[in-house]
Design a binder for these strands. Structure first.
Length: 874
RNA sequence: GCCCCUGUGGCGGAAUUGGUAGACGCGACCGACUCAAAAUCGGUUUCCGCAAGGAGUGCUGGUUCGAUUCCGGCCAGGGGCACCA
């Protein structure tokens, strides 16, 4: 019976804080390590404490929380922890600007963000919280670094960094803008530094082949990682140099190629600016030395190298073609050759490689086609060849290539490999097959303060000496300043001066700190037992809780963070800190939160709160609230401070409540795609909250009791919803879950309206409402607790079991099949659900509508797809 | 530049993975309730067309009885590129 009392409004402000307190005092979400139920570890990528949480966090953590709450309802022991990725550059930048300490800024941000996260009502085990900048955390990281060092997983070698010659500091790639330092504006130079590396490249093959086992990872992430690792099969090939042209001591040049078949098309060779041959030649050629300097002024990022104009310098050195001693090709230094890949030297075949082609055109080098399409003759291919517009030949045969003529590309590669392996030059084969990887070792040294100190001491006599374990942690000094650029650890008056642990003489601490990717490469393992003060991990806890069953985070981490974590887990297993290879069994990458942008008449960005949207004649117009002047509505972009198109989660939770914010973040857009934040969308979510509250209020008045023998439609709808929502939750399709819950709420509304006609439906409706509350409980947990109590259910819904669907209640006696004629829909027909294709065809042929439509046409074929469609071909 | 992804009504999206395109929500419009407004409830809403009907999933070509889904080419937007996290 609908009551006539004034509509009650759900008071989210009061209810949300009340339930959060109930959960907290009851320690409802704290995980007991010895919980006997099957474990489920759900983890969202922990945040960098940048200041305040943003909508991207709300979305990420809402998703993880739904999974955690759903798994608890399904009977799992759930581990759902949270912590802080607290080292990093922004803290140093803030320290520089505010003249404070990075730690002060970081811990203040953590306090703010923790309060914000708590207001979201997330079912997190806060007892396990830690920050990576805490010595209690990085102490263990230093210990593992030393264990890795002992196990041969660490090496020291030189690599290039972006050097700001004015600020005398190393710059991150993002601090290099158009080749200049972001603060000083000085042209950036490349500098070689001796740095620490983790030997991830030793695991290239393993990290690649194990991708196949990650069946619950998105295919695109596995593909990106596979491409990143970049396995290629090729040939190492030694070219003899014309010694008259080469610097002293250089008689040959070894290159790596994946296209030995195109060797007859070679028209130049190119080496990296850091190649020994280039350096030696530069010593005697001032112009070349200047060019090498120019190459070194380029940034170190791959994108910079690839998009820069292809430039080269002819060293005057000539190399002898391995198959034709009379043929010599020039050796260039080129700005697009990387010393890190292969041997830092290539031969160029301009006819069949875009980059080589661009280079050949720029330096007017010969272009000799050596692969032609199969449907052309040699003569035709030569006649058709146009230097200005060379054809791209994907699958062709060799020509202009001596003994290779007529072979396919693959056969020619094989023939070349065989020939060069057999041929020798100075007791070594001229060529050797080589599997090469693009993946480079992981450089972990950073010339910065706010990171985990590398626990090593440099002694003039003993070399690099590990800090003894009893001396760990090596703690960052507090008394540092950021008034000048550069590494405060390096210029600290006392910190780095220590005695050598080995010989006792005066020695120096390593002043480099670790890449923050190291911090995030094992935090998920630490969460399994963060209470262990002695060791980084506890074997029993690792064995019980790892791997992470569901990891959720941004697609921007698809390669580096995830690949490093996969490597780190293997390394930890080698050194006894873990016992598995793959840390993340299931991975989900969620999309960004985006918003419209607004600009005032003067061209300044306006925040959404500074703008009012008027809708007249279906056209949306923005008005700047402060001035009343019209504002321009710009494109929809990722929320960012610079464009001011940010919505503060605090404001949303304050005016609509956490449940509404969570519900909206999960509705509409599929979770892997970007979601557009809109005011209308939040209001819709808010309306649904109030609608649910009204339905529950009405249902609570209804009699509870056994359901009648005739199945009420609302019961059918409830059980369909249980199946659909469960199925979609398993696959993290939250937007579809929400659609199913809307469906159910609509059926419930209609049933309540029909109660006057059929008063016996009371128990069925009440039961369906209870089901609905359980289904949305993972998404709107506060409202669900409130409704649960209102419906007179005992205990917390957070501890309640997931409802079970009865399949018998869902089956229908007959279904409506669409009928197509020649693929176009012409009508429908009702058939019994269990009819077989022949019976369906008979029913269709007998149907009056169908026979009328087929008047005068001959039936060629009838296709019956059971429970789907009938197509008649005429 | 290289690698990867995405593209469906006015808007976010759905489509049982080759089988009724537009579920669900937002917005808009019409109506009920109200002195009035808000809230709420009911209805309409892909486009063209009075209708019958036709067209339609970024563009273009193909495979198929049947294509949003598979294949080729193009266009647009986004993510990553090793020191941002």
């Amino acid at each position: 019976m609908r009551d006539n009392t004034p509509t009650r409004r759900y008071n989210f402000r009061e209810a949300e804080t009340r339930w959060q307190k109930v959960w907290e005092t009851g320690k409802v979400f704290e995980t007991k390590t010895d919980d006997p139920r099957p474990k489920y570890y759900v983890l969202e990528m922990f945040p960098y404490p940048s200041g305040r949480i943003h909508m991207g966090h709300v979305r990420n953590y809402a998703m993880g929380d739904v999974v955690a709450r759903y798994r608890r309802a399904k009977g799992h022991a759930v581990l759902h922890p949270m912590g802080w990725d607290a080292f990093g550059m922004p803290a140093e930048n803030a320290a520089m600007e505010k003249k404070s300490h990075p730690g002060t800024w970081t811990y203040a941000n953590i306090a703010t963000m923790k309060t914000q996260l708590k207001s979201m009502g997330l079912s997190l085990d806060w007892a396990r919280e830690f920050a990576t900048c805490d010595p209690k955390y990085y102490k263990h990281q230093q210990r593992m670094f030393l264990d890795f060092l002992k196990a041969g997983l660490v090496t020291r070698k030189t690599s290039k960094v972006n050097w700001d010659p004015v600020d005398h500091t190393v710059l991150a790639n993002e601090q290099v803008i158009d080749g200049r330092g972001w603060r000083s504006g000085a042209l950036v130079e490349q500098r070689e530094l001796t740095q620490w590396f983790l030997k991830i490249s030793d695991y290239s093959d393993e990290l690649l082949s194990a991708l196949d086992s990650l069946t619950r990872w998105p295919e695109k992430v596995r593909l990106m990682q596979a491409n990143w690792i970049g396995r290629s099969e090729g040939l190492m090939l030694r070219w003899q140099l014309n010694t008259a042209t080469a610097p002293e001591g250089f008689s040959e040049l070894e290159i790596y190629t994946t296209r030995p078949d195109t060797l007859f098309g070679a028209s130049f060779m190119a080496v990296a600016a850091d190649h020994p041959l280039a350096k030696a030649a530069g010593a005697k050629d001032a112009k070349l030395a200047a060019f090498l300097d120019e190459c070194r002024r380029m940034g170190t990022s791959q994108a910079t190298v690839d998009t820069a104009e292809k430039k080269g310098y002819d060293t005057g050195i000539r190399a002898k073609h391995p198959l034709d001693p009379n043929r010599e090709v020039p050796v260039y230094v080129a700005n697009f050759i990387l010393m890190d890949y292969g041997t830092g030297a290539i031969f160029g075949c301009p006819a069949h490689d875009q980059r080589d082609y661009d280079f050949a055109i720029a330096y007017d080098l010969p272009i000799i086609p050596v692969v032609r399409p199969t449907n052309q003759s040699d003569a035709e291919a030569n006649a058709a060849f146009d230097r200005k517009n060379p054809p791209t030949v994907d699958d062709g045969v060799l020509f202009n290539s001596g003994f290779l003529d007529g072979l396919t590309v693959d056969a020619a590669k094989e023939a070349m490999a065989k020939r060069f392996e057999a041929e020798s030059l100075g007791n070594k084969p001229v060529g050797q097959r080589k599997v090469n990887f693009r993946l480079r070792d992981w450089g972990v040294s950073r010339q910065r303060y706010w990171g985990c100190p590398i626990p090593v001491i440099h002694c003039d006599d003993c070399g690099t000496v590990p800090v003894p374990k009893q001396d760990l942690p090596v703690v960052l000094p507090e008394d540092v300043t950021f008034d000048v650029p550069g590494n405060p650890l390096d210029r600290h008056p006392t910190w780095k001066h220590v005695n050598c642990p080995s010989c006792g003489k005066k020695a120096r601490r390593e002043t480099d700190t670790m890449d923050t990717f190291v911090d995030s490469s094992w935090y998920f393992a630490r969460f399994t037992d963060p209470f262990n003060t002695e060791d980084p991990t506890t074997p029993a806890a690792i064995a019980k809780w790892l791997p992470v069953d569901q990891y959720i985070g941004g697609i921007e981490h698809a390669i580096l963070h995830l690949l490093y974590s996969r490597f780190f887990t293997r390394a930890m297993t080698i050194t006894g800190h873990a016992s598995l290879k793959e840390p993340f069994a299931g991975l989900f990458t969620q999309g960004m939160v985006v918003h419209e942008t607004y600009k005032s008449g003067s061209g300044a960005w306006l925040a959404p709160v500074e703008v009012r949207i008027d809708s007249t004649d279906g056209e949306r117009k923005a008005v700047e609230i402060a001035t009343g002047a019209p504002a321009a509505i710009g494109s929809i972009e990722k929320m960012s401070k610079s464009k001011k198109n940010v919505v503060d989660p605090d404001d949303i939770i304050e005016s609509y409540g956490a449940d509404t914010a969570r519900w909206f973040m999960l509705s509409d857009s599929p979770p892997e795609r970007d979601v557009i934040w809109s005011e209308d969308g939040v209001q819709g979510a808010s309306r649904f909250v109030q609608k649910v509250w009204r339905l529950v209020g009405e249902a609570a008045e209804l009699p509870d009791g056994p359901l009648g023998s005739t199945v009420h439609p609302v019961t059918k709808a409830a059980h369909k919803a249980i199946m659909a929502v469960g199925d979609d939750l398993e696959r993290l399709r939250f937007n579809r879950c929400i659609a199913h819950i809307h469906d159910l709420s609509n059926v419930i509304s209609a049933s309540l309206a029909d109660l006057l006609k059929d008063a016996s439906a009371g128990p069925a409706i009440r039961d369906a409402v209870r089901v609905m509350v359980q289904l949305f409980a993972p998404m709107m947990p506060h409202l669900a607790e409130e409704c649960w109590t209102e419906l007179g259910c005992t205990g917390l819904i957070a501890n309640a079991d997931w409802p079970v669907a009865d399949p018998a209640l869902v089956v229908e006696a007959s279904i409506s099949l669409p009928i197509q004629i020649n693929g176009k829909k012409r009508g429908d027909i009702d058939v019994p659900t269990d009819a077989n294709p022949a019976e369906v065809e008979a029913l269709v042929r007998a149907d009056a509508k169908v026979t009328a439509l087929l008047e005068g046409k001959e039936i060629r074929k009838v296709i019956v797809v059971p429970k789907r469609i009938v197509n008649i071909v005429v």
